[in-house]
Design a protein around this nucleic acid. Structure first.
Lengths: 204, 204
DNA sequence: AAATATAATAAACAGTGTTCAGTAAATAAT
DNA sequence: ATTATTTACTGAACACTGTTTATTATATTT
C-alpha cells in the first residue's frame, strides 16, 4: 500500500503549504489581513480547495494558535529551567511579557481571539497547550509557597494572580492603552510593574 | 437665525438616531454583528447617508466607546465614593470586574478594540475618559500609600499593578480562557483572586 | 422664477467566508 | 484495453462587508 501512503503524504503536504502561507500572512499583516482568498492566491489554488483541508477559517486559526505555542515555548524554555522557584517565576514573567510584546499576532491568537476557541468548542477539543503552561506555572507556585512557607496561599490562586497580571500588562501595552495613560517609557513602566507585582507577593 | 438652528438640531437628531441603532446592534450582536449597512437598514436610510454624519465606522465605534464609559461610571460611582482608600480600592476592583463581566461588548470597545483608538489617532484626540479613570485610581493609590505609610511604592506603579490585574482577569474570563484552565466556578475564582491581589499588596 | 445650496441615494468598487455543481485526471474493475 | 469509479480541484454563485461618487430630489436664497 505504498501508493495510498504517498497520497496521504501529498495531502499533508498541501495542508502544510496552506498553513505556511497562512503564517506568512499572519506575521506580515495580522489577523485582519489574513484571508482565505489571499492564501489561495498565494499558493495558487482556488479558495474552494482550502475547504478540502480545513473545515473553516477558525480551524486554520486554531492550527496557527498551536504553532504560536511552539514559538512561545522557545521564549519560556530557559525560564522554566531555573532552579529557584521564585527566580523562576520572575523569569517566566519576563519571558511571557517579552513574548507578548514581540509577537502581537501570535499572542492575540493564543490569548485573546475567540476564533480558535470557537473551533475548540465545535470539535470538543482542548486548549491543551494553554492548560499545560498554566499547570507548569501552578507547580512552580506550589514550590514557591512551600519554600517560602507562605500560609493561607493557594497555588492555583497565586498562579492565576500572576497570569492575569502579566496578561493584563501585555494587553494594555499591545492595545496602546498604556502609552496613552502614561507617557513614560512603556518598556521601563512594564518592567517596574512586573517587579512590583513579584515583590509584593514574595517580599521578605 | 432660528431656522439654521433647527437645521443644526435636525442634523444632531439623525446622528443620535444612528448611534442609538448602533448601540442596539452592539448590545444585541456584539462588535462583529455591527455593520453600517444594518444600521442603515434599521433607521431606513441608505448606507451612504451615514457617511454624512460619521467619517467612518471607527468614528462610530469611538462614540460608542465614549457611551460605554458612561455605563461604566454608573458601576464605579459608589466605589469611588468610599472614604477609606483601601476599601475604595477593593470596591473599585469589584465594580471594575463586575462591569467587565456584565458588559462584554462595552468592555471590548473601551479596553481592547483598536478601532476606537485608530479614530483617536486619526483625529489627534485623547482617550480622556480612560485617562481620567486611571488618574482617579492613581489618586486613590496615593492616599492608600500615605495612610499605610508604605515605603518605596510609587502610586503610578501601584495603580498600574491593580489595573493590569483586573484587566487581565476580566479578559481571561471574557475569552473563555479561565473556565478552560480551571473548571472551578469562575465567579468564585475571580473573587478569590481579586482578594488575593489586594491582600498581598496591603497585608498588615 | 431662476439659481443655489443641502440632503439623500443608487450604484459601483473591492473585498470577505463559504457552498455546490461540475470537470478533469488518476485509479480500479471489468 | 475499455469502462466505471473515485479523487482532487475549481468556477461561479450567494450573501455579506466598508466606502466612494455621480446623480437626483428637495429646500432655501436671490
Amino acid at each position: 500500500m505504498g501508493l495510498a501512503e504517498r497520497k496521504e503524504r501529498d495531502k499533508l503536504e498541501l495542508k502544510k503549504t496552506i498553513l505556511e502561507a497562512a503564517q506568512k500572512m499572519l506575521l506580515a499583516h495580522g489577523q485582519d489581513g489574513l484571508s482565505i482568498r489571499k492564501i489561495a492566491d498565494e499558493i495558487e489554488y482556488s479558495p474552494a480547495t482550502i475547504y478540502l483541508y480545513f473545515a473553516d477559517k477558525d480551524a486554520i486559526l486554531h492550527e496557527l494558535m498551536e504553532m504560536g505555542f511552539g514559538v512561545m515555548n522557545e521564549y519560556m524554555k530557559d525560564a522554566f529551567a531555573q532552579k529557584d522557584p521564585i527566580k523562576r517565576i520572575h523569569s517566566i514573567g519576563h519571558a511571557y511579557i517579552r513574548f507578548g510584546l514581540e509577537n502581537k499576532d501570535w499572542y492575540e491568537l493564543m490569548f485573546n481571539s475567540d476564533k480558535p476557541m470557537k473551533h475548540i468548542e465545535k470539535c470538543c477539543e482542548d486548549w491543551d497547550q494553554g492548560m499545560a503552561m498554566f499547570a507548569s506555572l501552578t507547580e512552580t507556585c506550589r514550590q514557591a509557597i512551600e519554600m517560602h512557607k507562605m500560609e493561607n496561599v493557594e497555588e492555583q490562586i497565586l498562579a492565576l494572580q500572576l497570569w492575569c497580571s502579566v496578561h493584563g500588562l501585555v494587553n494594555l501595552a499591545l492595545t496602546e492603552r498604556l502609552e496613552i495613560v502614561q507617557q513614560n517609557n512603556s518598556q521601563v513602566l512594564i518592567e517596574k510593574t512586573l517587579d512590583a507585582i513579584i515583590h509584593t507577593i514574595f517580599k521578605k
